[in-house]
Design a protein around this nucleic acid. Structure first.
Lengths: 336, 336
DNA sequence: CTGAAAGCGCTTACAG
DNA sequence: CTGAAAGCGCTTACAG
């Protein structure tokens, strides 16, 4: 059988309560007793049973991470591993575990989250992605359950969020391209239901607008079209009258596809078309030409999200309900 | 306060034991009682407290996943998200949760795993990577704790593993290149302490050996060198006498770097050098030229690992202690 | 500073 | 088919 607190207590000649107090580092325990109990714990190889501990303390020391469905659609491959490492780093240091959940549909996600919350399985939840009208967010809010969203929900400005300033970053990229002499700048979008897509598009428009430029519909390329037939979409873009000479691209993976199509069609980058991506994929510096991108600090997004959630769980005062992780432009050859 | 089994029992006019039996779907419960209890549970929005349930049933319905330290070093970015989805899919369907753990050093990993095991925090563990002489594996084996290794440990042939046949896949790639007329074929390796690096190198050597070719040391490129200064390493390779005309590359990320260096040095692919990678990165079809690669079925590795672990946890008979997930060559332009 | 007792929310032989 | 009782391994007022 497993060693329990009672075994330790007997061997140390104290009561179980005392052992418990030693474990929790409670004050009001004599140094001698503490020493003795610790020695016995060591000797017996005692480890507290987490289930029992959690049951009585009504806390799980665990945070839940909801992996969005369609992780592939949302360019989450690299994002996911980095953000997880960030979360894990913070959580582990604070003595918390990380539980992963996912669902194939919004309903499945809701069921999963519902069981986590009602079953007292976790103390708080991190959401990895903001769709418009996300019911998981609304559920969590209704339940007053601690949670942090990586991203933002335009309709719920008061929830805890960690995000980049995506409007600003796209603004910065567009401005960067304007400064380098481009005036016809297109935008290749990600899935339209993602808030980040909308935010970046907004920043792009603002920068153009300030420069007195009104982008015609022809400068906008939809991710769906690229996914279906990248080369056809790129050809249409390139052959449209007054075509862009530069492209702001929502994600480096998308940028790769565009680069490939451009090369296939005989266009050169950046000569015929400058390309600036987002999210700084590890492969981006390695392509030919290397892809300009925006480092969005994915690891830090995870770190900050975990930090914010832990403060919320512990009921600590939260001065800033929306944490912004800085971004950094990394111009490479594709836009030079 | 939260709704407990007792609240349900009272409202339904039965004993807590009966409610418990209804929840667990026990036989020997009248349809009428079951119906009534279920209705009350629904009405009250009852959800079982997992901690209590786990405490008494001595099972956690959770499996642990140990994320290797240095995830970046080991090309795990895409691997990690895919394998996790595979594990999660299987685990969720079986009613199991997934707990993530990591450590910055082997000692930290050992501590983490020790707490999981001794604290009865999970029912089994999946290990994502096999290094030589891995102490985590040895600890788990000593404790007789259920675990599955994705990969293999050459010294422990009897542990539960899910893996590709890496010797065979590298053999296949090398054979493919031989069949296309190459005879001087080099090998770009990953970190040498990873078993997968050794296995693939072995397959590569076998294929060459069968063709009567003994690769000279100059055909071997170390990942460390590539990482430090890819272009210098590639230049040295290209300028060596009797240089290879084709390269088997341990990972697509590495292949990208090599492609980039080749292009920088003015060499064309596959004209001057054919390149064949591994692990089929999502970016691989998108580069110029698209990189030939081996689809190793990462999602399936996760799926099978979870399946195998669950059988082990439940004490079900295991006919095959080593499960091989098939690989598939995907030749693209870089090797044509 | 320490102990005895009650309780966290569930399951499971043991009876009937 | 159902209930009363004991127990999973811990924590935490309540006393002293």
């Amino acid at each position: 059988m497993n060693i329990t607190i009672i075994d330790v207590a007997k061997k140390a000649g104290v009561s179980p309560s005392t052992v418990s107090r030693v474990i929790s580092g409670s004050t009001r325990i004599s140094a001698a007793t503490s020493q003795k109990v610790k020695a016995v714990m060591e000797e017996l190889g005692y480890h507290p049973n987490l289930m029992a501990k959690n049951l009585v303390s009504r806390t799980t020391m665990t945070i839940g991470l909801l992996l969005p469905r369609n992780a592939d659609e949302a360019f989450l491959d690299i994002f996911f591993s980095e953000v997880t490492r960030g979360i894990l780093s913070k959580a582990t240091r604070a003595g918390y575990d990380l539980l992963l959940k996912t669902g194939k549909s919004e309903q499945e996600e809701l069921d999963a989250v519902n069981r986590l919350v009602k079953g007292r399985r976790v103390d708080g939840i991190i959401l990895l992605q903001s769709r418009l009208d996300d019911n998981v967010i609304r559920f969590l809010q209704k339940e007053k359950f601690p949670f942090v969203l990586i991203g933002r929900d335009p309709e719920l400005p008061d929830i805890l969020t960690v995000d980049n300033d995506n409007v600003q970053s796209a603004y910065d990229v567009t401005k960067h391209l304007l400064d380098r002499g481009h005036s016809r700048i297109g935008y290749a979008s990600g899935p339209l239901e993602l808030v980040v897509s909308a935010d970046r598009h907004e920043g792009y428009r603002q920068a153009l607008s300030e420069a007195g430029i009104e982008p015609p519909p022809g400068w906008f390329v939809n991710a769906e079209l690229l996914r279906a037939d990248s080369t056809a979409a790129v050809r249409e873009l390139m052959e449209s009258p007054g075509r862009p000479t530069a492209l702001v691209v929502m994600d480096d993976l998308l940028a790769f596809g565009i680069l490939n199509s451009l090369s296939e069609l005989g266009y050169s980058v950046p000569g015929d078309m400058a390309v600036f991506g987002f999210n700084d994929n590890p492969m981006s510096p390695l392509s030919s030409p290397p892809v300009s991108s925006v480092d969005i600090g994915v690891y830090d997004l995870g770190l900050e999200a975990a930090g914010l959630l832990l403060r919320s769980i512990k009921g600590e005062p939260i001065e800033q309900r929306r944490v912004i992780v800085p971004h950094r432009l990394i111009p490479r050859e594709s836009s030079t």
